[in-house]
Amino acid sequence: MTAHGTAHTGGRTGALTARPAGRHALLVELPDAERTAAFHAEVLRRRAAGALPPVEEIVPGARTVLLDGVPDPEALARRIAGWEVPPVTDDTGDVVEIPVRYDGPDLADVAALWGVGPGEVGALHGSHTYRVAFCGFAPGFGYLTGLPPHLHVPRRSTPRTRVPAGAVALAGPYSAVYPRATPGGWQLIGTMPDPRPLWDPARERAALLTPGTRVRFVTAGDATAAGTTTGGAAAVADTTTGANTTTGGTAAAGAGPEAGA
């Protein structure tokens, strides 16, 4: 039942593909990350406006948005094909500031890949605004886009068995902050001094970095407060309950190469 649509995304007509994903789900595939972000924002807008049929889960990926728990996926696919989808703009979504000490063990390697000195990595990394494209790997682990292509770096050839909570890391097009200690293969460039705001299931908004949120990295000391949110819901309500550092499992069985971190 793969349905091709011509919804207007990113200000131009871009093909989207609605792929089947079982009796009650639809996987909508977009041509690139930017139009995926735009489509995801449009889904959230329509749901907030009550203009979307019931959907239990809205799960963005790198080039897709999964709509799960949908009564009639085929009918939804037909509706989506006719949507006008405005492009995401620089002011779409809440902004979260993440304080960082640029002291990661892979700082020198990343500096060499970027062709700069280790002292310049922080300024370069902090000069861009990022957006949470999607979450996965662990609760509250956001895959952040926004690093220009010439600054993309490969994963480490040998993953670490333990990456500490708060590690600020790079791999491919993504930046991330580890919400808890896990194994990981990303390049570690810095540390969020207090990572507890990243994930707190006791808080109404459990994850600090939700899909669509914009993120700025600021050198620790410059930030007004850890994990400050501006222009949106107060994300940091309670940091006293501590980070969830349970090690009850890792993304092992069946997780794909991109699901690892």
């Binding site: 994903a21 079982g22 789900a25 996987l27 889960e57 799960v59 963005p60 990926g61 790198a62 080039r63 897709t64 948005v65 999964l66 799960d68 999607f134 996965g136 790997f137 895959y143 499992g249 993304a251 069985a253 069946g254 997780a255 794909g256 991109e258 699901a259």
Partner: peptide, 26 residues
């Protein structure tokens, strides 16, 4: 590229053997 997974998805890792995703799936 990473994409959302549904309960009951049959994912095929590089070894080619189907894996049926149960409730604790990524």
């Amino acid at each position: 590229p990473s994409e959302g997974m549904v309960l009951g998805a049959v994912q095929v890792p590089p070894d080619g053997r189907p894996v049926l995703f149960l409730h604790d799936h990524p």
